[in-house]
Design a protein around this nucleic acid. Structure first.
Lengths: 189, 189
DNA sequence: ACCGATTCTTGATCTAGATCAATAGAATTT
DNA sequence: AAATTCTATTGATCTAGATCAAGAATCGGT
């Protein structure tokens, strides 16, 4: 159950067996069915969630009731309402399973303990956040600079397999476009 | 010259004098005049830059030659083309001083050394990146969900003093709006 | 204190992409 | 395998905000 997590961590830092055992003890496992929620908007996000198997999305609602997807997370990705988790305030995002999924979850308290007790995990999260920041920067630039077509093409280039796993209407929501726009781009008319 | 940096670090971790001395030795100082550049698009971003005094912006050009500002950085902010710095690839951003500024800069090599040799700095950057991620997430949500007016109002609320230091046309560029749009929002017509 | 540079405002017009509508095609559930 | 629900396509129309244009106000360098 922890294979994907440990291989993800060990791309960045090397852990002893004792450290792995300790890490394992700080997480809980959770299975969730397609269409199930692990976070509802308005609740406090109590866990950082790592995806061992499956696919989830986080999304917010705008004032008109339109859903905007922030993130897709499949095997090897972390997902949360990070602001809510860190500051323990109500979430603006909800998190829903797109496929049946197996998850690892760590609470706010255990997260802090982990960082203090295992310095390599401090390093792991520093590198993880550093990489996330790079990709978030690029998404923000694309979001403000690119045409609808460029946004779509850039996404397909950077995550080609997304097309196999995520329906087009959700991709549209992720890119901030109408589903019809994606359809027209693909069929070029 | 290092006051702002150390007070920024010590909001997050406590340093000994020996550690401070070591940190100091890893940075170089730089003064730059208004309109001066510390990074040009296409060059590799060799430094992470901390602003001790003054104000800078990072921005990219789209295919039509429109400038899109990613970040304003004044006292207590870090600025870089992070992807370029981390992966040592050509920058898509340029960084220009909006006011005469005093900067502290650390190279890629010294950054790695600092993180290894002073574990508290690993923690500092983990917390820094964690906070940045929270605000980047919020900007991305706002960018995809909010109307022009909401984007402007949200910015003014979260950084009220930006209005005093940054001309409106640059705020427009930061929000991905036309300068005329900001003018119309302010004067409500 | 002046002169050229930026920066801001206001109105007129244009356009990329949203929204609406209707149909068809795929998947899931029973 | 029928029924229901979800997903994609295509055309017609609409709209938020961009672009263009021209004048007014403000700034900053000498």
């Amino acid at each position: 159950m922890f294979q994907v997590l440990f291989s993800h961590i060990e791309e960045k830092v090397q852990l002893s067996d004792a450290e792995k055992a300790k890490i394992t003890s700080y997480f809980r496992t959770k299975k969730i069915k397609r269409r199930g929620y692990i976070l509802m908007e308005g609740d406090v996000c109590n866990f950082l969630t790592f995806v061992e198997r499956g696919l989830l999305k986080s999304a917010n609602m705008d004032e008109k009731g339109n859903e905007h997807i922030s993130l897709f997370a499949w095997e090897g990705w972390w997902i949360s309402d990070f602001n809510s988790f860190i500051h323990q305030v109500p979430a603006v995002l909800s998190i829903e399973a797109i496929e049946d999924s197996e998850l690892l979850q760590i609470s706010r308290d255990n997260y802090e303990k982990l960082l203090i007790e295992i310095p390599l995990m401090e390093r792991y999260f520093r590198i993880l956040y550093q990489n996330s920041l790079v990709t978030k920067d690029q998404r923000l630039i694309s979001s403000n600079s690119d045409s609808a077509e460029s946004k779509y093409l850039r996404l397909v280039e950077s995550m080609p397999n997304i097309l196999q796993r995520v329906p087009q209407n959700l991709i549209a929501s992720y890119l901030g476009l109408a589903p019809e726009t994606i359809s027209r781009i693909k069929n070029k008319r």
